[in-house]
Design a protein around this nucleic acid. Structure first.
Lengths: 174, 174
DNA sequence: GTCTATAATTAGATAGAC
DNA sequence: GTCTATCTAATTATAGAC
């Protein structure tokens, strides 16, 4: 997607139209304006993320749940590099109302990991000095895969998932 | 800085001029064009990062060196949120030649952590299945602090540094 | 449903007065 | 060294033909 490669502000409606194969005016049959186009891309992405996580079979123990989450996060994000990039990079180009909606969705997702770490801390499966901080640190680490992973590179996806799972597990003090 | 808040492409030379307190034409006394302005911001930031790291007193053991690096990284990045944001977000707006220079500088910095992890793996201070991957994962985790940390928030900087050090140490299998 | 044409605005960059 | 004025090109969005 053009937004991912060049950024929302740098891409014109004409360029988008050319990529889709229509003239610029025709785009306005599908979106009221450029801002709404960006907003819907990001909203759809995050709603799909939450729906996919809800449909994921959960583990029993906190340790299993943490591993399931880590693998799910990497898999889902590597499958959608463009959408992930946009969802992280274009937040500042959202108008305030749209921004609030997106932030809410993102927070809902973070809460899923947070509750795993919280449960695991109470059962002493994990040892984290600060649950919120660990949540954000682990998500940052996992999402970082998207910045360097390339299909057909040195490491297979399964190998990457396994290594990151290991680091996450240890970062959580498991 | 305006580039950090709204993005390179979204900010006009007129807006920059207004912030500095001059008219648009006067900016071209200080930069040949907008692209060079962005490039110099990013280059200066990364050169200062490398210079500051070079001036940092290193530890003796791999474990000490990893802790020094983690604390240095967090401290330096929290001191310059705007520059960090720009250096990470505006890579795609650099022209190819400029991009190559910036990427080289970034890689030089990553190599510093990589060599710590490599040395520590050989002495068995650390246990990482893949050194390059651990390097990128740790840097992503540390840089993630900038996305949520706010001065005067719930946790002091020293506390944040300490917690992250702990997670990094564990992620490295120390 | 798509195109062409265009309105209204804004962009980066330059020229010349002072 | 800065400002005013301006050039050229590109922008979002709309109107109306087909």
């Amino acid at each position: 997607m053009l937004f991912a490669r060049h950024g929302y502000a740098a891409v014109s409606m004409r360029q988008i139209a050319a990529e889709v194969g229509v003239q610029a005016g025709a785009l306005y049959l599908y979106t009221p304006d450029k801002q709404t186009l960006l907003f819907n891309l990001m909203r759809t992405h995050l709603e799909e993320l939450l729906a996919a996580w809800a449909a994921e079979p959960k583990g029993e123990t906190p340790q299993e749940r943490l591993e399931v989450f880590s693998r799910f996060h990497i898999r889902f994000h590597l499958d959608r590099p463009d959408e992930v990039f946009i969802a992280y990079m274009e937040l500042r180009n959202l108008e305030p109302d749209n921004f609030a909606v997106i932030e809410r969705l993102r927070h809902d997702y973070e809460s899923e990991l947070e509750s795993i770490l919280k449960d695991g801390s109470e059962t002493e499966d994990f040892r984290v000095p600060d649950i919120k901080l660990a949540t954000l640190a682990i998500i940052a680490m996992l999402t970082g895969v998207n910045t360097w992973y390339r299909e057909g590179g040195r490491l297979s996806r399964d190998r990457v998932e396994r290594i990151y799972c290991n680091m996450v597990r240890r970062a959580a003090g498991a």
